[in-house]
């Protein structure tokens, strides 16, 4: 873990860390690195099939039938702001 990786993590998680917090995270992640390396060396996963789910389950599917059990008004009742059927959010383009 270096400062560049930490910067990317900050960006992706929408965080702004103080210098002190950055130092704490760097020390924390780097101290865990040896644990991960130990695991990596101890277990050979070369030919192990990817586990998709802990239980051997499969999805159920539904038929392609249209239903409309909810009204727009119900769904927008908790919205901070709506306008003529649209949800409103702060402007995202300049």
């Amino acid at each position: 873990m270096d400062r560049e990786i930490l910067r990317r993590l900050e960006l992706l998680n929408q965080l702004r860390l103080t210098e002190e917090e950055k130092q704490t995270f760097l020390e924390f992640f780097n101290s865990k690195k040896s644990n991960l390396e130990a695991l990596d060396n101890a277990v050979n996963t070369q030919n192990v099939e990817r586990m998709v789910h802990v239980m051997p389950v499969m999805t159920v599917v539904r038929e392609d039938v249209v239903k409309q059990p909810f009204s727009r008004d119900d769904l927008q009742r908790s919205a901070p702001e709506t306008d003529e059927g649209y949800w409103c959010v702060p402007r995202v383009v300049e």
Partner: peptide, 26 residues
Amino acid sequence: AEPNAHVCPACCGMPGMLPVVNKRVV
């Protein structure tokens, strides 16, 4: 269609809603 005329809690991302796969898509 009117805006948001064809929406439900699942497709507008309400917390806790679970997707159910449409067989015809597969």
